[in-house]
Design a protein around this nucleic acid. Structure first.
Lengths: 131, 131
DNA sequence: CTGCATCCTCTCGGATACTG
DNA sequence: CAGTATCCGAGAGGATGCAG
């Protein structure tokens, strides 16, 4: 690994420590659903129901739970309109924006390489190469 | 969110789909221990025992499991020396290197901001501000 | 529409003991 | 030293029903 990128260990020698706050934040933003919810929010403000439909496979429980965690962390903001039926909108805060600025390059790389990576594990992923 | 960063949704509209390979890779590299193991490997080649001691709190089971997953994905390489006692070394592959190139900026940002983020949740984290 | 409460399942992950 | 095998508890996470 290039040295210039590995300086995190010098600046933050405690990142490997069990008690490091980094662990907590990492668990939130890099959780199975946290990543996808945050990514969905890079689109801009979005309603609860739209979010649920957008993040394929997420349950209501996990969506609510994930949103609350990320809101507590300060990554997203929740706006509730006193209407009936209710309308609630979520969006990234400036902190969340800063986070995603670093996360998106990683996501794009993963999205671009995921096929090749998983393909190597399952001999034939789709095409009838030798069946 | 700045538009230039949000183009992942246009290029990879399937990232939100449950069956997208991205989900699998994401689960591996952004898992609780996957991140830390990969980060530890940015130091360069390292032995099994050193790795275990470095990543504070990881069990033998999870270390072995994490390493096998990441090796299968092609992010790390395993070199076993036919000696006694045995010696096994792990290091990043070029693929793993490319991954960490995108991951480290994120990690550094998280490490730099984790204190503030978690501090907001626990009114006083260390200092006797008002107790 | 936007959640919360409950129940229940299943996997993650820790502890321990054992092998080459 | 570098793992594997087994057991087991805790918590993640899904399904359903209900409330505001």
């Amino acid at each position: 690994m290039v040295v210039s990128f590995a300086q995190i260990r010098e600046e933050y020698p405690g990142v490997f420590s069990e008690s490091c706050p980094t662990r907590v934040v990492l668990d939130h933003v890099m959780s199975k659903w946290g990543v996808l919810v945050l990514l969905a929010l890079t689109d801009g403000t979005i309603r609860w129901g739209d979010l649920r439909r957008k993040v394929d496979g997420i349950s209501e429980k996990m969506l609510a739970s994930t949103l609350r965690t990320l809101e507590t962390d300060g990554f997203i903001s929740r706006t509730s309109y006193p209407e009936v039926p209710p309308r609630v909108e979520y969006s990234l805060t400036s902190l969340g924006d800063a986070l995603m600025e670093r996360m998106l390059p990683l996501m794009e790389w993963v999205a671009a390489n995921a096929d090749d990576i998983t393909a190597r594990e399952k001999p034939a992923r789709c095409g009838p190469s030798e069946a």
